[in-house]
Design a protein around this nucleic acid. Structure first.
Lengths: 115, 115
DNA sequence: CCGTAATAATACCAAAAGGTATCATTTATA
DNA sequence: TATAAATGATACCTTTTGGTATTATTACGG
């Protein structure tokens, strides 16, 4: 398995996938509709959609012979949570307050050695 | 080259690199000090540090024969900016599509029904 | 100076990523 | 019921990634 955070960051690492998210922000789309936005095969786009789904950045909804791809909040939230946590921690560092280290330790069980 | 956002997301995609950032949040470290925190060779850790530097998540400061690695705000900001932009735009979509979502959603979802 | 600590630079490897091409399966529809 | 549309499933290929091991180079200390 993969932590929520790991799945999300992995999915966000590819520029095509971030673009797909933007397109899906405009409207839900079938695989074919997403593919039309890119200069690559449907197979490639489908793989990207699978990785986005694994990262809980989208949810997929079969409808007849189509598969509707829709933004889902969980993945984005997982990544945003990590960044926000890190930012707080960063701000404290800048303010010379080192007390966040305890919180870091407490959270490390969620984020070590997966992938 | 790479966009700031791409460099940052690429660097954040690896769990070891995210852990390195956490460690550097506690204090600046030389390559050897960072390596001591992980069960891998210095060469491997150094590669991770290079990618973190390319993503502007850390800055590197030679001091004598050592290389001090230190958190840098630019990379985190690039990723956070993208996510925040995406989130705003996501919030708008959620409001607009609520009824359509309710028609089809048979499972899961923490986004549900906050009317 | 000499030894050694810290890092740099390569060469190499296995696995994962990102892509194509092809064929099979399911579902609308004329 | 054919047939085409949409997707599923594989097989395959190349490049990137994450790692090791080994050999320089650089700088500090006695």
């Amino acid at each position: 398995m993969m932590s929520a955070e790991q799945g999300a960051f992995r999915a966000l690492a590819d520029p095509t996938r971030r673009q797909i998210l933007m397109h899906l922000g405009a409207s839900d789309m079938t695989i074919a509709e997403v593919s039309d936005q890119f200069d690559m095969t449907r197979g490639a786009v489908r793989k990207h959609l699978t990785i986005l789904e694994e990262g809980n950045l989208i949810s997929v909804h079969p409808r007849g012979r189509e598969r509707i791809n829709r933004l889902a909040p969980d993945g984005i939230r997982a990544a945003a949570d990590w960044l926000n946590y890190f930012n707080r921690f960063w701000d404290e560092k800048l303010g010379a307050l080192q007390t966040a280290i305890e919180n870091q330790q407490a959270n490390e069980s969620d984020q070590d050695n997966e992938q």
